[in-house]
Structure formats: structure tokens, C-alpha cells
Design a protein around this nucleic acid. Structure first.
Lengths: 117, 117
DNA sequence: CGCCAATAGATTGCCAGTCTATGTATTGCG
DNA sequence: CGCAATACATAGACTGGCAATCTATTGGCG
């Protein structure tokens, strides 16, 4: 699924999708492309992974969607709801707390020079 | 299991255990205590979660273990093997790559002031 | 014109892995 | 003496991603 450790990526798939959606409405295939680009080709979200997540987000009222059947190629546009935007903010906070916590646990194991020259 | 988002924590449980073990040999219960302390009480690793992981690490030859039955309270000491130390280093690198990647995806959503005053 | 690749959405079934619950036994304190 | 803490372990339930598969459209190439 990605050149990154899949176990790690697993826990933040919906965070990533939510994040991509924060740019505005997108349809599934677009989300895959954007995520791939935004991650520097590191993340390649498979359809069988993404759609269940999108459906889950929808049933949780975090995203809303609309079919566009105006062209032969039908597209389903997904968009963050107000609750979704709030949820995203919360999830970002959780992620930062997690990163800081793990950073602390790893302690001296992590190279303390993350800033690029 | 923790006050952190469990979904996120999930992917790094073995990383955390490996990290605690990098301090030297530990037995299961000690690992729980150390992890709890190192995480600022954020992570409370349950026995039913930890032991399967330890057994998996053992069968993967990443940790080696020895029973101490000298006291009535028997303890099983776990220690990193050479392969385990190498593996830990690799996993730390993967984790850093993951963090940077996600940081990039989240982009402007992350508060760009992580350093404490 | 026919075919294939890319685009676009979705589902099914499998499997890995964590969590809850439970079980056993020891030690020390009140 | 009983209970809480220490100490290890497993069984079964449940969640969730992934591979595989399906349908259909569009556009380009031979």
C-alpha cells in the first residue's frame, strides 16, 4: 500500500483522507491521486481500502456526498461536513499528542536533528 | 488502553516495547510499568496485548528470553537479540519517515510550533 | 473499428492483530 | 485470613485493511 510501514499508516488513513478533503470536495479517484502526490508517492491508497473508509465517514456524518451524473462517467463527490471539519481538527491534535508521546518514549533513539539544512 | 487515540498507538506497540527493551533486559510486568512512566501515564499496555507481542517478537528471534525461577515469583526476562537491535533501529527510521510524510500531508493543518518554550 | 489502459465506483472474503475476559499462582500488608 | 498487587498466559470476539474481483465509461492506438 505504501513504501512506509503499513502498520503505522493504518492508524491514520482516515486522518489522511480527511486532510485531503479539507481542500474542498473531491471524488474517490481524485483523493487517491492527491494523497499520492502529497505524500511524495509514498502512499498509494487502494480502492478497497479507501471506499470502506469513505462510507464509514459518511455514515458517521463527517463527510457528505453527492453524485454527479452529468457526464457518462459518474462521480461521487465527497465533502467535509461541519462536524467533519471539527473532527479533523480533533484528530490532528490527537496525532500531534501521539507523536510527542512516542518521541518521548523513543528518547535517545531518535536522531534529534529533523530540520533540513 | 491509553488516553491517546488507540488506532494510532496500535501501529507502534512493538516499536514501544522494543524501545523499552533497548535499556536492557526486562520482564513483562516491568515493561508495562516503564512504558507507563515513559509515556507520562498515557500508555497503559494490557497484559493481553503485550504478551502476544512479546511471544511474536520471540518467535521472530528479535528478543530472547530466560525464566528466573530463583524466587517463588517467577519472572520471564526478555532481552533484545542482535537482530532485535538492528530491527529496532530500522523501525525507528520507518517511524521518522512516517511522521515526516504525514506532517507533509497535513501541511497547514499542523501547528508549526512544536518546540516547548 | 476493436481493444486495451486508465478512469471511476464498489463489494466480498480473508487474515492479522488487539482487546476483553478469564485463569493460575505468589507475595505482602492490614 | 483475605485482598490488592505482582506476574504470566491464553481463548474468543471484533475490527479493519487488503487482495481479488466486478461493472462501466472514456480515449488513444493500431
Amino acid at each position: 500500500m505504501s513504501s512506509l510501514n503499513p502498520e503505522l499508516v493504518r492508524g491514520s488513513l482516515d486522518l489522511m483522507i480527511l486532510s485531503v478533503l479539507s481542500d474542498g470536495a473531491q471524488y474517490g479517484y481524485l483523493i487517491q491521486q492527491k494523497l499520492k502526490a502529497a505524500s511524495g508517492e509514498m502512499i498509494e491508497l487502494k480502492a478497497g481500502t479507501m471506499y470502506p473508509i469513505l462510507h464509514r465517514l459518511e455514515s458517521n456524518k463527517l463527510v457528505r456526498c453527492r453524485w454527479d451524473e452529468s457526464t457518462g462517467r459518474r462521480r461521487k463527490w465527497y465533502e467535509l461536513t461541519v462536524a467533519g471539519k471539527k473532527h479533523l481538527k480533533k484528530r490532528v491534535g490527537e496525532w500531534q499528542a501521539y507523536v510527542q508521546c512516542l518521541q518521548r518514549i523513543l528518547g535517545p533513539l531518535v536522531d534529534p536533528s529533523p530540520q533540513p539544512a
